[in-house]
């Protein structure tokens, strides 16, 4: 069972539908017991960093996520969900994140249109069970105005280029982040979710 954490706004249904297609059972929840019982956790997210962190803290899910991460439970963060894994975000202020990954979030360079919205290619940085070995730059769907700007090099699996290098897939042990929306990235995105699910079993 996958626990999809629902801390407020956004389209969670598409993610559920994608998991349904893969025959993966999921529940949308904020219940601590359900999250603890789940085999893996997905932290989705759209909206503002500060609001999301506040909602997570109010539900006492910050400590739950940190504990489950510590125990080695696979946790996937998508879009803002990935950004919440980091220590710090400078989105309209200076906010503390979950600290599951080292690094911080800053606004995308204003030399390009912000938000970074649409289909962009992935550059694979490291071999991973998530990708076919001969994969040519697939397109995935991004929508974000802020991006991970400092991170541990070893965690970067794939990136994209948009005015700067955009970390697109990061992984450290049981923690995986995807800046784009796999559930909205056509067949490739669904395949990526499938490979991720196989990887964590």
């Amino acid at each position: 069972m996958i626990a999809i954490i629902d801390y407020g706004a956004g389209n969670i249904k598409s993610l559920q539908f994608a998991l349904d297609k893969l025959n993966k059972r999921s529940i949308v929840t904020t219940d601590v017991a359900e999250i603890k019982q789940a085999d893996s956790i997905i932290l989705p997210g759209v909206g503002a960093f500060k609001d999301a962190m506040e909602a997570i803290r109010q539900l006492h899910l910050d400590t739950v996520l940190q504990e489950e991460a510590q125990k080695g439970k696979p946790i996937l963060g998508i879009c803002l969900g990935m950004q919440l894994f980091y220590e710090q975000s400078l989105e309209n202020g200076d906010w503390e994140g979950l600290g599951l990954l080292k690094g911080s979030i800053t606004r995308i360079s204003s030399e390009v249109k912000v938000p970074h919205m649409g289909w962009n290619t992935l550059d694979i940085q490291q071999a991973s069970p998530l990708f076919e070995s001969k994969l040519e730059n697939p397109y995935v769907y991004f929508v974000h105005s802020y991006a991970v700007s400092s991170y541990e090099e070893s965690t970067l699996l794939a990136s994209s280029q948009y005015g700067q290098l955009i970390p697109a897939i990061v992984q450290k042990g049981n923690i995986t982040g995807m800046q784009f929306h796999p559930e909205k990235s056509g067949e490739f995105g669904i395949e990526l979710l499938k490979r991720y699910e196989e990887m964590i079993v």
Partner: peptide, 8 residues
């Protein structure tokens, strides 16, 4: 934009 985000 505040509540749901600029992206949507």
């Amino acid at each position: 934009a505040q509540k749901f985000g600029s992206q949507c």
